[in-house]
């Protein structure tokens, strides 16, 4: 090591250049190992980037992205003036906030309870069951929900009818969906998230817990004074990262559950679903891309902020 330093120190400008080339050559294997990924991201993530320009034109088929007339910020202006941008941002952020807050509370709750279980068999089986929803496609989630809730022969309505009650028609009532979507999201994600917290609980020093018990702490006190504080770092990190993604919606879930049912759009339209519709059925490439770009920029800022905060608290976890 020291030798290398000496060489570098005595090197002239020309030699330095060769030094870079030599370094590149020295790590050629590692570079080659990264190469497939570099090519991959270049092809599928960097190549489309110049196409963002489409957000500033009035797209037509013959001109394509770069030949269509430039109209500056008109697409953004339209979106802002129509109130669309505000509504979409509001929906997306509120849903995400509900997902994050309730999701973490439920996951911690389940993890703590799991930790109290003594039966290994019970833990294993219940975890497997809770993981099931995490494994299925969003398409199937849409079907499950429809099968439970649809008006004509859904499970819930079958029960209601049997009980002599009036049928319930959520698919024509936008007001109930914020609650329903949150429940569906929790149903799908909690199995996974609870394992994260469960692992964090396992990481808490067992001796502290035993010591507390010996000191006469009861079960509630143990949870309140030892486990919950022990989970705080994990929670804080997870929350901060979630904040970074606050303007990114769960397209698969919303699209498959709500689909093209426009009655429900007022409460269920998020940025992703709007972009998809605008680009495809309404065929407004430019406007769709304008919303997408807006989302990217806000998202970028949010990630930068949250990463900055993470770096302050737990430098080990920061992304870059």
């Amino acid at each position: 090591m020291g030798k290398g330093k000496a060489v570098a120190a005595s090197a002239t400008g020309g030699k330095k250049k060769r030094g870079i080339r030599e370094t590149l050559w020295k790590y050629r294997t590692l570079e080659l190992m990264c190469l497939p990924a570099i090519i991959f991201f270049f092809m599928f993530s960097y190549m489309p980037l110049p196409g963002i320009y489409v957000a500033f034109v009035n797209y037509n088929y013959q001109g394509g992205i770069f030949g269509s007339p430039f109209i500056g910020l008109q697409n953004f202006q339209f979106l802002a003036e129509s109130g669309k941008l505000f509504e979409l941002t509001k929906n997306t952020i509120l849903y995400n906030l509900a997902f994050i807050i309730l999701g973490n509370i439920l996951a911690i709750f389940v993890a703590i309870l799991l930790n109290e279980m003594r039966s290994k068999w019970f833990k294993k089986v219940s975890q497997t069951m809770m993981f099931l929803p995490y494994f299925i496609s969003q398409v199937l989630v849409g079907i499950l929900v429809y099968n439970l809730l649809n008006y004509d022969y859904g499970f819930v309505n079958t029960i209601l009818v049997k009980l002599g009650l009036e049928k319930w028609g959520p698919y024509s009532d936008p007001t109930v969906w914020p609650v329903l979507l949150v429940i569906i999201h929790l149903w799908q994600q909690t199995g996974y998230n609870s394992v994260v917290y469960f692992a964090a609980i396992m990481g808490i020093d067992a001796e502290i817990i035993e010591a507390a018990k010996v000191d006469g702490a009861n079960g509630f006190q143990k949870i309140r004074y030892i486990i919950l504080p022990g989970l705080r770092p994990t929670l804080v990190i997870l929350l901060l990262f979630a904040m970074g993604g606050i303007v990114k919606g769960n397209f698969g879930l919303f699209y498959n559950v709500v689909g093209t049912n426009s009655i429900l759009f007022p409460t269920t339209d998020i940025i992703e679903t709007y972009v998809y519709r605008a680009a495809t059925t309404e065929f407004n490439f430019s406007r769709a891309s304008a919303v997408g770009l807006y989302q990217s920029i806000i998202g970028f800022i949010m990630v930068m902020i949250s990463n900055f905060v993470v770096k302050k608290i737990e430098p080990d976890y920061s992304l870059f």
Partner: peptide, 8 residues
């Protein structure tokens, strides 16, 4: 009577 909720 429940025509409004009848979608199908």
């Amino acid at each position: 009577t429940d025509v409004l909720n009848n979608t199908a």
